[in-house]
Design a protein around this nucleic acid. Structure first.
Lengths: 336, 336
DNA sequence: CTTGACTCCCAAAACGTTTTGGACAATCGT
DNA sequence: ACGATTGTCCAAAACGTTTTGGGAGTCAAG
């Protein structure tokens, strides 16, 4: 309610002493410190955030950009993640602001606004592209940041990502082991790192098994994109018997295509993300998900350590992808 | 990159003039104004946010508290709403910070921290209780705020809410018109306004139809809560033939109970929220939802107007609830 | 008695803006 | 020709902290 000046005056002390008392410095006597603290508690004094931020040259804020294209804030637990991240940041005195991208502006514009206006101490980026201009900008400005997803940037930067390559390779090999030979891939837009990574995983497995890698169709990372891509694969002279889909949303679209074209239930399918909705599709959608508890806390920790100046190489987490087996990945395999 | 002092020096002007030129004041000549603007653009000058905030005594921030109890950030479009709200606030120079409630702290503590530390110009509250201490606190401090959901506060405050009473009354009357006579209600925790409001709507309809209002069970606003409450109602000597559920999550839990107890498909059911998942349950869940496009924009607008000093009475929006008819509300009605 | 160390406190500077209250010329009205 | 007005500009104050660089006073050792 009050400010430092008033509080100091009412105590007959200087502003300096009151400030230092509240910060627990040793150069103010224990008795004075206690007296100051009690008085501060009584009037409910809280330092003015703007003033402290100006003086300390820290914004006490971290921004996360929210891509506004539909389907791009995919993971259902995204808000939980943000919430967890914000909670752990708050414990360190930082608040998390969400920065959606208005139409007509790029994510880069947003970064610029926040960084150059000294509005944030760090940034959190999601849905990275292989060549990501936001990453390049932040690196050039030297401001700490963490990405959800890797990039192909030459300079290392902090990230948390799932090992999509290994996950999709393993999923493909599993289909191969189950007898499948025509395994298709429904890919996301290849400029995104995650989409490209997953595609590479599928391709690597196919090559290891000496199988052709032509059963690949790309689409938007949405239900509709998966639907269209699946239709494309189903038009091939030699249809796939199994589909590895870049995302659950695309897998659900693919399921719709299967239902229309071959009555469903003929082709095995697996997605990625573990959308809750997947448990309710028919057949229930088998999927994959990144391991790791309390992802929000990890992001917060990485952000804080990045702000603290730790080198980027030590701030990279690559998480194992695990299978979530439901039903859709083991449709009966019929002879070719 | 630079600050006002350096910019002024490089132009041979005073700080004052540069500042006013950038703000477009008329008392700096058009030619100087243009010269300043160009120079500012060239070096990418952006005023330091903390300094401006301190001087203008405005935080340029709005906080939204995120309840951390599971199931309490229910609506799937919640993040979209926040995103829309943040986007429109940003157009007015305000950023939205998300403030989850750490364990061991109350939402009231959070409000206190933000308000007394002058960290925000306004707050956004979700999931109001009938008697909501956060609302009382903010009113006592005189800080602008908007709630998602009404309260029973004596002093009016800005809100956006769905007319749960009318919605649940209408849903119940619809069941009555379809021949149902034993219509149960699965209620949420009655300390929440929305839960109480919806319960009142059901009760009002039942009384209008001269039906007993004993088929009511309360549970946590989660799948499990709905499951348990449904089991309770199904144990009654005279079972309900239709269920009106406070939320979709509870309705989904109730569906599970029905499946276990009577093989499903015997009892009509309707929920509220229009969770995407509802389209995938069996039977597909009929539900209700609040009308209104661009809810985030509405919240932002109300917040800005509240900050602008408009009286609370003019900042209240009560939205009509509409039906989303799928299948679960018209199970065949069997003789008693 | 001097010196140094130590304890407790404080005045003033600094952070980077915005705003107040003019200063100084040039122009205008009469 | 003179006061009033207008058009440009600026010095300084203010916002509320934190931090710097001491200033007294006390005490113990030399």
């Amino acid at each position: 309610m009050a400010n430092l000046k008033q509080l100091a005056q009412s105590l007959g002390l200087s502003i300096t002493t009151v400030s230092r008392a509240l910060d627990g410095y040793a150069d103010v006597s224990a008795v004075t410190r206690e007296r100051v603290r009690e008085a501060a508690d009584k009037v409910g004094y809280r330092p003015n955030a703007s003033a402290r931020r100006l003086r300390k040259q820290r914004a006490e804020l971290v921004a996360v950009t929210l891509p506004s294209d539909p389907g791009h804030i995919g993971p259902p637990h995204f808000l939980d993640m943000l919430s967890g991240c914000a909670e752990h940041l708050a414990a360190a005195g930082l608040n998390l602001v969400i920065a959606p991208v208005p139409r007509g502006e790029s994510e880069l514009d947003i970064c610029r606004r926040f960084v150059d206006g000294r509005r944030v101490d760090a940034m959190l980026l999601v849905r990275t592209k292989r060549k990501d201009e936001r990453v390049e900008f932040l690196q050039s400005r030297g401001i700490p940041f963490v990405t959800n997803g890797r990039t192909e940037s030459l300079m290392p930067h902090p990230y948390i990502d799932g090992d999509g390559f290994a996950g999709f390779r393993a999923a493909t090999l599993r289909f191969h082991a189950a007898g499948h030979r025509r395994i298709g891939h429904i890919a996301g837009p290849q400029e995104y790192y995650f989409a490209h990574d997953r595609c590479r995983g599928w391709r690597a497995a196919m090559e290891e098994c000496d199988l052709a890698t032509d059963l690949c169709a790309e689409g938007a990372p949405l239900e509709q994109g998966g639907y269209l891509a699946a239709l494309e694969l189903l038009r091939q002279p030699s249809r796939p018997t199994a589909l590895v889909c870049a995302t659950d949303e695309m897998a659900i679209g693919a399921l719709r295509a299967l239902r229309e074209v071959d009555g469903g239930n003929q082709i095995s399918i697996v997605g990625h993300d573990d959308l809750p909705m997947g448990a309710f599709t028919s057949p229930p959608l088998s999927t994959m998900r990144m391991t790791g508890e309390h992802l929000g806390a990890s992001f917060a920790s990485l952000l804080l350590r990045a702000i603290g100046g730790e080198p980027a190489e030590e701030l990279q987490e690559l998480h194992v992808i695990e299978f979530v087996d439901r039903d859709s990945h083991r449709r009966p395999l019929r002879a070719a």
